[in-house]
Design a protein around this nucleic acid. Structure first.
Lengths: 210, 210
DNA sequence: TTGTGGTTTAACCAGATGGTTTAATTTTCT
DNA sequence: AGAAAATTAAACCATCTGGTTAAACCACAA
């Protein structure tokens, strides 16, 4: 599937990624991609045939990347707590290096969700969730953490990890920070999220004061 | 600013909203908006002059709606716990009635964030956050909740409330549910989020077993 | 040097796009 | 009823868009 690309193909893919991430499939222009790659437009067709084909190659790769990191962390031998910490740490660092990626993926997925169903399946999202689910169930049964619904915990973690990158312009405006300060805020945020999640999973139920 | 619109202006705005929410500014076509409104394209220009002007009217209104609900809840007399519960409940219900809205807003904001800075300011997002901040600080000082950083709590809540709607296609695919079942999942999710947030704010520190 | 295959380029194409112009039609006012 | 104002519609416009075509160019082998 991912064959070895020649130099020009790589140049085109890199340029296309930048343009598609900013403008999406509908908004991207082949002439802009050509300009970005330093070639003429006919070259894009020579190597990739159509805008749609080029887009899907980029999109599938980025979709897979989005879900693959967590899976490798889950496959390790560490404790469940350590795995959760590593997921939060590494996923957020990954997003800091390409803050536009989540928006790109979710926006394109939402335009025609049925058409992308196979792509989501192929991306490994389901397998990643299943791995997560098994790990959380085992840890609950063996008493390492409080038994919880994996779907909800998964969604807690993804929500807390990804959303700041989706809403970055609003966060920057509301907190009156720039993009570098956003990065520093995210480092702080990692610690906060880690504590929130791990405390919610600690085994004894808390006694309310009411 | 929001003058009284005649019948045709309302028809055009409703149609434009549907098309812009699906395709965004760059992807939307004036002919599609005209078809959706049951008019010819020249009528759009007659009433709204340009695609860009029409877009900004819609966008500003939706942006303001997105942030205004929380503010009115915060202005009430209820306890901070009750307010948090109501924010989660009502914001998620609002999003269930228009699940595409968050994606639309954040995607357009991320395309050219600097240009939208004034729009974010005018939307009341900053005021909403300030209200939230004051309420959380007061509740912390008066001992109703554990003292926390408002920025992080605000982001926790927004993350947990909004993200499921951003990632709905992935959630549906991974959990193997359809959009109606997604709605049911969200009802369950409300309870889960409410518990997570309120427990994290409860006053006594939990004693770890380590 | 010539022929071949592969790559690169400029010109071209049909249709789409946002917007304008002008005439026809409808509504409102006197 | 007639005139003026407002609205609606069709035709038009310049430019953009994804994609195609054919020629020019390049590298390599015989």
């Amino acid at each position: 599937m991912q064959k070895s690309y020649c130099r020009n193909e790589l140049l085109i893919c890199e340029a296309a990624k930048r343009v598609f991430i900013t403008h999406g499939l509908e908004g991207a222009r082949m002439q802009d991609i050509a300009d970005e790659a330093g070639m003429n437009k006919a070259m894009l067709h020579y190597y990739f045939r159509s805008k749609e084909k080029l887009f899907h190659i980029i999109f599938e790769k980025e979709l897979e990347n989005f879900f693959s990191n967590m899976k490798s962390i889950l496959a390790g031998d560490a404790s469940i707590q350590e795995k959760i910490l590593r997921i939060i740490e590494e996923e957020m660092d990954s997003m800091l290096s390409n803050p536009r990626l989540p928006m790109f993926i979710f926006n394109e997925l939402s335009r025609d969700p049925d058409h992308f169903l196979l792509k989501i399946h192929n991306s490994g999202a389901g397998e990643t969730f299943n791995s997560f689910s098994r790990a959380i169930r085992q840890a609950g049964e063996s008493g390492q953490i409080k038994p919880v619904h994996p779907e909800h915990l998964f969604l807690d973690m993804m929500s807390l990890i990804v959303y700041p990158f989706i809403s970055r312009p609003v966060i920057n405006a509301v907190l009156k920070i720039n993009n570098q300060e956003f990065g520093e805020f995210i480092q702080e945020r990692k610690r906060y999220i880690s504590a929130l999640i791990l405390e919610s999973l600690t085994r004894e139920a808390y006694h309310h004061e009411q």
